Amino acid sequence: MILILSRKEDLAVNLVLPKLAERGVEALWWDPGDYPAESRITSRLTGGRWRHTLVTGGVEYDSSVFSAVWNRRPSRPKAADVVGDATHRDYAEKVARFHLNGWEDAFETRWFPARTADVLRAQNKLVNLTAAVRLGFTVPETTVTNDPEELVEAWTEAEGRLIAKEVEFVEFGIDGTGHNFYTTPVSRRHLTGRNRLAHAPAILQPYVDKAVELRITVVGDRVFTAEIHSQGSRATRHDYRHYEGHFSQYAVHDLPDDLERRCVELVGSLGLAFGCIDVILTPEGEYVYLELNPSGQWGWLEEFTDLPISEAIADWLVAGERRVGRKVSA
């Protein structure tokens, strides 16, 4: 059986579940956001071995039945509604997170892409940029800072062709409405308001001209590369995430063998079995690394290009069933 940790509105899970069923493998889809309000977890050390049980939907599962865990996009633990006091809710949710972290670490099975601690580390752009440089990827000159004067220096060095983006993709609110900070060219007007940078760091890089953008999805040792023709619309020219799937054209891209190999090595070096890598292909034919997302979206690429990413994920997950001798249909 496969344990899937993700929120219930996750469309990617719905793409993979039928593939698991075709392979004769059961799956339990559980969101840690149901814990501790609606689910129970017990970890018991007996005779030198841990036994973990999960109770959800009135059914108890021993962790030993799970040959793999797909750590997709779980919600954070949530206290029960009856816990009304804010400080009590904060306490309950914090200790629940601590227990979940320990449960993951002691839970000996195959994790896809990895345990949460490893996912969060790999998601840190300084970490995956450093790993990419080490493996010989071409990476733009990068400054990460909250020093307003560093913004001026980076803008000058880039001869006015500078972009800013978040250290982490985080939604925030303005007058009660959710917003995201997308990749943004830095103008002279931004320099006049540069003191606002002191309140939160940003990533600064010289603008890289694009022929196309590439989303490279690595599943184990398999690589799927899609071209995103983002330059055909002003809406997606600087950051295709504004309107992915609406204004851009998509195609399958034949990645050079050496670069494909390094993509697999990059994901593996970060302790992951999966990763979505964003790369720019310049008009001159140079591949420029931007970042890696260990929980990146891929469903819309499968829709537009027919790349069999969900099949590859299902294959990776059920491989553990074969290793422990469980019956898996072809």
Rank of each mutant, 00 (worst) to 15 (best):
S295P: 02
R49I: 01
T56M: 05
F137V: 04
F172V: 02
E104A: 10
T130S: 15
W155E: 07
G275P: 13
A27D: 01
G285C: 06
I41A: 01
G57A: 08
W155R: 12
K8S: 13
G173K: 05
R134D: 14
D147S: 11
H238M: 14
K327I: 04
G232A: 08
Q249V: 03
A251G: 14
V119D: 09
I280D: 08
P74G: 12
L191R: 04
V82A: 13
E104F: 08
A198Y: 10
N128Y: 03
Y182N: 07
R188G: 14
L317I: 03
A79M: 07
G47R: 00
K8W: 06
W300E: 05
E159R: 15
D258S: 06
H88S: 12
P201R: 03
T143D: 05
D254K: 07
T116W: 11
V13I: 15
V186T: 07
E60S: 12
K94M: 12
S75W: 11
S75V: 05
Y240I: 12
L290W: 04
D147Q: 12
G271L: 11
V127Y: 06
E311N: 05
R49Q: 07
G275L: 10
V223D: 01
D118Q: 15
E166H: 03
L17A: 09
A80W: 11
T138Q: 13
